[in-house]
Structures are given as structure tokens and as C-alpha cells.
């Protein structure tokens, strides 16, 4: 394996991610092709002095071409073919408009219940639009106003589910009848006093802090799939965000501990 600069290594890994994504669902074994591409890059850059920079790597990747164009259309999975056809309408905006339509319908029908189905459809269409434009080497441009709301909404929902729902579950267990007595000897039946508000707030903050600390460790491993899932919004998601979450978790947890134990 040749040595690359960190930027070149990141670029290469992203290229391989695009390649795996492009070959997913086809009859071609992505792992087999990946091994070939790694070997190709190794051989092509063997005579270049290490560490290999991003410019030299780009020359080789450009000759390899965008992986999204490696498979003929009839070998691509059905959803890519459908998305491709939908996007080839007037000015290539058809898929973007369909995405926004599904998103708006999803929001409108959310109180009824099955709006969530449309929001998920809008999210999938938005991701398909982004992948297709990336394959063509185009950016979203003004289409982002039609496409990104669906991705942001889904990201917000997933973030709430991952960051807030476990805290609410922990809090409800701790604050249910009798359980809080184990923490500070304050029965649930005690009237709303400043003391009870302090202890309950402290308990919720401690739960949130502890969970966010745990999740920040998980985020180190989950960053890659989450980044891929919510592209282009999460393009830069990485360890720095895990660190930031850990810091916030530590601060909130400390506030919780102070409220629970340090104040008499």
C-alpha cells in the first residue's frame, strides 16, 4: 500500500465509497472491484515519490472515471434506473420538484399519521437526486432549495431519536413514582417545591450528559454510515463533532451532578 497525504487518503476513501455505492445492487462484486482499483492506484503511482499528494491521485482517479458510469444502465438496480428517468425531464428539474412535492405532502399529512411515509419517500428521492448529480459531476445549485429540506428533516428526526429519546426514556424511568427516592430521597408525591425542581432538573441533566458522552464514543464509529446516509448535509461529519458532543455531554452532566449532589 502506497503512502498518501491525509487529504489524498480521504479523497481515495470517498472515491471507493462512491464506487461501492454505484455497484450496490448489481451483479458485480464490489469487494473484488475495490481490490482491483486499489491495486491499479498502487501500480499507477508506484514511481511517484511518497507521500502521494491529492493532485497526483486525482490524475489517476480521473483516468479511472466516475464509478457511477462504470455500469451500463440495464445492469443498474431498478431504483437507480427509475430515478435516472425521472431526472431527465425538462431542465433536469423533474426529480427535484417531485422530491419537494412528496416533502410538502408529507408535512401536510403528518398530523393524519401517514405523512411520515411521504417524508421518507421525499428523503429517498432527495438522496437519489444528489447521487445522480454527483455522478454527472454537477452540483445541486438552486435545486438545493427543493431537495435539501427533505434530507434536513430526516436528519433532524434521526438526531432527535438518537440524542433525545434515550434521555427521555431514562428520565421517565428515574422520575416515575418512587424511583427518585433512590437518587435523593425525594418522593414523587412531594408538592412542586424548588427542591424537587432542582433534583429533577439535575437528574435529567445527568442522564443527558451521560448518554451524550456514551453516544459521542458511538459517533466515532457511526460517523461514516451517518455521513453517507445524509449526504450532502453531513459531508463533513467526523471526529470533531463527536468531540464537541462529548464536551457538551460532560458540561451538561457536570451541571446535573452539581444540582443533584453539590447543592445541599
Amino acid at each position: 500500500m502506497i503512502e498518501m497525504t491525509p487529504e489524498a487518503q480521504t479523497r481515495f476513501e470517498r472515491y471507493l465509497t462512491r464506487m461501492r455505492s454505484a455497484l450496490r445492487g448489481s451483479a458485480v462484486e464490489a469487494a473484488d472491484v475495490e481490490q482491483n482499483v486499489r491495486e491499479h492506484v498502487d501500480v499507477a503511482l508506484a514511481s511517484t515519490a511518497a507521500p502521494i499528494g491529492i493532485d497526483r491521485l486525482d490524475e489517476v482517479l480521473e483516468q479511472l472515471g466516475p464509478p457511477e458510469r462504470w455500469l451500463p444502465e440495464d445492469e443498474q438496480p431498478w431504483w437507480k434506473r427509475v430515478a435516472s428517468r425521472m431526472s431527465s425531464g425538462p431542465e433536469d428539474w423533474r426529480l427535484a420538484y417531485t422530491t419537494f412535492g412528496a416533502f410538502a405532502l408529507g408535512l401536510f399529512l403528518l398530523p393524519v399519521g401517514f405523512g411520515l411515509v411521504f417524508l421518507i419517500c421525499a428523503f429517498l428521492l432527495a438522496r437519489a437526486e444528489h447521487e445522480l448529480l454527483t455522478a454527472r459531476g454537477e452540483s445541486l445549485g438552486a435545486r438545493r432549495w427543493l431537495v435539501l429540506p427533505a434530507i434536513w428533516t430526516m436528519l433532524l428526526g434521526v438526531a432527535m431519536l438518537l440524542l433525545v429519546a434515550p434521555v427521555m426514556a431514562l428520565a421517565s424511568i428515574g422520575l416515575s413514582d418512587g424511583n427518585l427516592q433512590f437518587v435523593h430521597g425525594v418522593p414523587h408525591t412531594q408538592p412542586e417545591t424548588l427542591e424537587r425542581v432542582r433534583i429533577e432538573t439535575g437528574y435529567i441533566a445527568a442522564c443527558a450528559g451521560a448518554w451524550w458522552l456514551v453516544f459521542s464514543i458511538l459517533l466515532v464509529f457511526l460517523a461514516k454510515p451517518l455521513r453517507t446516509m445524509f449526504l450532502p448535509v453531513t459531508e463533513n461529519l467526523g471526529r470533531k463533532h463527536a468531540l464537541l458532543l462529548a464536551l457538551i455531554g460532560a458540561m451538561v452532566g457536570a451541571i446535573g451532578a452539581v444540582l443533584l449532589f453539590a447543592i445541599p
Binding site: 464506487m19 455497484l23 448489481s26 451483479a27 458485480v28 462484486e29 473484488d32 472491484v33 482491483n36 482499483v37 491499479h40 483516468q63 479511472l64 472515471g65 466516475p66 464509478p67 458510469r69 462504470w70 455500469l71
Partner: peptide, 15 residues
């Protein structure tokens, strides 16, 4: 050809 096109075909021919 774009060079990368060859690799999926090699994989398929092998399968």
C-alpha cells in the same frame, strides 16, 4: 474507455 469500466466487467466475467 474510461479505465475503471474494465474492473466491473472483469468481476462479472469471473463470476
Amino acid at each position: 474507455i474510461t479505465e475503471g469500466t474494465v474492473y466491473p466487467i472483469l468481476s462479472r466475467l469471473k463470476n
